[in-house]
């Protein structure tokens, strides 16, 4: 499936700020089932963008804006070609508990952190999930997803980008980010390596144009084929309309943007994601490119006296 997506982020500040330093994880990953044909990043005020792969293989773009400014605008446009694997998830023969010991590099995806954290509530749920005898791994995962759908309610506005799993377990409500953390937490309790995926869904073949939203799902490790994606929010296997931007141990590793700036200001954020399916690869592929947007800067040097603000509260929650 050929998908073209435009991801627009507008940040505005109530006062002038300076020395914004930002990292973006907005470029679709290169994967066997997903090819990034082109990626363009437009940023304003004008700056210079560099990119690197982080330790999880995600493409990270980084830039800074030193002069004073009141707005930052980021438009990421990508064209990806996605497909689904030849194997059907339901055909996978992997068993639980796994037959062979895990490679040590997978142990990072069994560890709990301060978002996907252990708690008596999670412990109780995991015990409920735990099969009494060896079973097929895919059946166990289906069971987990059905359990989540049955016992948790999708509801916006209850949680934020920094909500931890313990809180979700208490009120049993949340958005895809929370559902994903929950699924990861349960899988890790059952010693199944699990990782977080940040991305978006193209609404589907019915509408060729439409507004999508940032989405999150997870991948569980099946020894026979590797990472297999599941969407606990929609209780389904992931299809070719899912575009994968970054993977990590939890949301912490993958926010679409993360920044630090100098100054004291209130930040507001507007995010828009638009996607469309293309019938064929267009001739105007850009490869990788960055360009500037016309967003103003203001006179006056950087102000070293003002404190730093770590832009954590205003990260993009993955909602849909």
């Amino acid at each position: 499936m050929l998908i073209k997506a435009t991801h627009t982020t507008r940040l505005s500040y109530s006062a002038l700020i300076s020395e914004t330093v930002m990292e973006l994880r907005m470029a679709p990953r290169h994967e066997p089932m997903q090819h990034r044909l082109s990626f363009e990043l437009a940023i304003g005020p004008p700056t210079e963008v560099r990119s690197y792969f982080d330790w999880l293989g995600n493409t990270v773009h980084t830039f800074s804006i030193v002069p004073r400014h009141r707005n930052v605008e980021i438009v990421a446009t990508s064209l990806v070609d996605t497909s689904t694997p030849a194997y059907g998830v339901d055909k996978l023969e992997d068993t639980w508990p796994p037959a062979a010991p895990l490679d040590y590099t997978l142990r990072d995806f069994l560890r709990f952190d301060d978002i996907v954290c252990q708690s008596p509530l999670l412990d109780a749920l995991a015990r409920q999930m735990m099969p009494q005898r060896p079973t097929r791994l895919n059946a166990l995962v289906r069971h987990m997803m059905a359990f989540i759908t049955e016992n948790f309610t999708y509801e916006k506005g209850i949680t934020t980008a920094s909500t931890v799993l313990t809180e979700v377990l208490e009120h049993r409500r949340g958005v895809c980010q929370d559902f994903t953390h929950l699924m990861i937490g349960l899988a890790r309790m059952l010693r199944i390596p699990a990782r977080y995926v940040s991305g978006f869904i193209h609404p589907g073949r019915k509408t060729f144009r439409g507004t999508s939203e940032s989405h999150a799902w997870c991948e569980l490790h099946f020894p026979s084929v590797g990472w297999v994606p599941f969407d606990p929010t929609n209780a389904c296997v992931v299809g070719e309309n899912f575009v994968k931007l970054a993977v990590g141990r939890s949301y912490r590793d993958v926010p679409p943007h993360r920044g630090v700036y100098h100054g004291v200001a209130r930040e507001t954020m507007a995010v828009q994601l638009q996607s469309e399916e293309l019938p064929e690869v267009s001739g105007r592929l850009v490869g990788e490119r960055s360009r500037s947007l016309d967003v103003p800067i203001y006179q006056g040097g950087p102000d070293a006296i003002l404190p730093w603000t770590l832009d954590e509260q205003m990260q993009q929650q993955q909602q849909q």
Binding site: V21, Y52, T62, R252, R258, G259, V260, W308, L310
Partner: peptide, 21 residues
Amino acid sequence: PLCFRSTSLLGVPGLLNAYRL
């Protein structure tokens, strides 16, 4: 603070990116 998520003011935001490059 950007890379290691500390809230401390001792460091330099973006230093690790400059180092990595």
